[in-house]
C-alpha cells in the first residue's frame, strides 16, 4: 500500500510546475520539502484531485488518480489556507464537512466529531464561531476535518505556517501520532517540521525532485560540506560573497559562522556534522 507517482508533469501555460516527478511514498510520515514555488502545492492538489496532471501517472493504494471519487473517499486534506464559512461554529464546520464526506449517519457523525474534537483538544469550543479561533486552533480544526472519514492518506500542506513555536511543536507531535496507521504527507518549506517527524523525505526544486530518500541519507550526503569556525567581523563580508553562509552568530569580537562549501572556506574552518537544514541547502544550492 502506498502512493506511486511516475513521470508526473504539470504546466501552467509556459511555466513548468512539475517536471517528470517520480516518487514512491509508503505508510508513515513523508516530508515534502522545497522552497516557495517549487511545485509542492501543485503536487498536493494533484494528489487530492483538485488539479488534473498533464501527463504521467499516480496511483494511491492501487487506485489511479483518474478515479477521483475513490481517491476522495480515502484522502483527507488540510490545504495551506484552511478556511470554512466564518459564521459556522466549530461543531457545525465539522458536521458540514462530514456530510460532504458522505457520512450520512447522524449518530455516527456526532460520535466521530466528538472524538476528533477531543483528540485535537477543541472539545470545549464546539459552540465557538470558527472566525474567532486563533491560528493554532484553526489548524487543529483543520486536522480534525481532514481526519473525519478516517482517511488512508492524509495530506497536509504547509500546516505550521504562521503558528507560534509552541503551537508548531504541538502540531508536529499530533501529526506524528497520526502517521502510525496511514500515509501522512507533510508539505512544507520549514525544515524543522520535517526534522522532528519524518523519516522519508523528498525535496522539490523548480518542479523537479532534487532529492528523495531517508533523512539519514540526506545527512550523510551533506557530511564534509558543512564548515564552522570563528572569524573576525571584518572577514564576514568576504565569506558572504564567496560562499553560502548558513548562519552567523556574533561572539564578542568574532563571529561564529556555518558555511556550505565543497572546499575549506578559511584556514581555521572545521568540518561539522550537518543538520537536515544543511542537507536541504546543499541540495537546493547544488553544492558538491
Amino acid at each position: 500500500m502506498g502512493i506511486v507517482i511516475n513521470n508526473l508533469c504539470k504546466n501552467y501555460g509556459n511555466k513548468v510546475a512539475l517536471d517528470c516527478v517520480s516518487l514512491n511514498i509508503n505508510n508513515g510520515m513523508f516530508g515534502l520539502l522545497g522552497p516557495n514555488g517549487a511545485g509542492k502545492t501543485t503536487l498536493m492538489r494533484i494528489l487530492t484531485t483538485l488539479i488534473p496532471p498533464d501527463s504521467g501517472s499516480v496511483e494511491v493504494n492501487g487506485i489511479p488518480i483518474g478515479n477521483k471519487k475513490s481517491i476522495r473517499e480515502i484522502t483527507g486534506y488540510l490545504p495551506q489556507e484552511f478556511s470554512v464559512y466564518p459564521s459556522f461554529t466549530v461543531y457545525e464546520a465539522l458536521d458540514y464537512l462530514a456530510v460532504l464526506s458522505r457520512m450520512n449517519d447522524g449518530k455516527q457523525r456526532k460520535k466521530v466529531i466528538d472524538e476528533l474534537l477531543e483528540k485535537v483538544n477543541l472539545n470545549r469550543l464546539i459552540k465557538v464561531k470558527v472566525k474567532t479561533l486563533s491560528g493554532g486552533m484553526k489548524r487543529r480544526l483543520g486536522i480534525a476535518q481532514a481526519l473525519l472519514a478516517d482517511p488512508k492518506v492524509l495530506i497536509v500542506d504547509e500546516p505550521t505556517a504562521g503558528l507560534d513555536p509552541e503551537e508548531r511543536i504541538r502540531f508536529r507531535n499530533m501529526l506524528g501520532s497520526l502517521a502510525s496507521e496511514r500515509i501522512v504527507i507533510l508539505s512544507t518549506h520549514i525544515v524543522e517540521d520535517i526534522e522532528s517527524t519524518c523519516e522519508q523525505i523528498a525535496i522539490l526544486d523548480n518542479g523537479k525532485i532534487a532529492y528523495s530518500g531517508s533523512v539519514s541519507k540526506l545527512l550523510n550526503e551533506a557530511r564534509g560540506f558543512i564548515w564552522g569556525g570563528l572569524v573576525g567581523i571584518d572577514k564576514l563580508q568576504y565569506l558572504q560573497e564567496r560562499f553560502i553562509l548558513l548562519s552567523s552568530v556574533r561572539e564578542s569580537d568574532s563571529v561564529r559562522v556555518r558555511i556550505l562549501s565543497d572546499t575549506k572556506p578559511f584556514e581555521t574552518a572545521e568540518n561539522i556534522s550537518p543538520s537536515i537544514e544543511d542537507g536541504y541547502m546543499k541540495i537546493i544550492k547544488g553544492v558538491g
Binding site: T49, R72, E81, F82, L97, L100, A149
Partner: peptide, 9 residues
C-alpha cells in the same frame, strides 16, 4: 472550495 472539491460529495 479546496475542502469541498476534495471531498467525495
Amino acid at each position: 472550495l479546496e475542502l469541498v472539491c476534495s471531498r467525495p460529495v
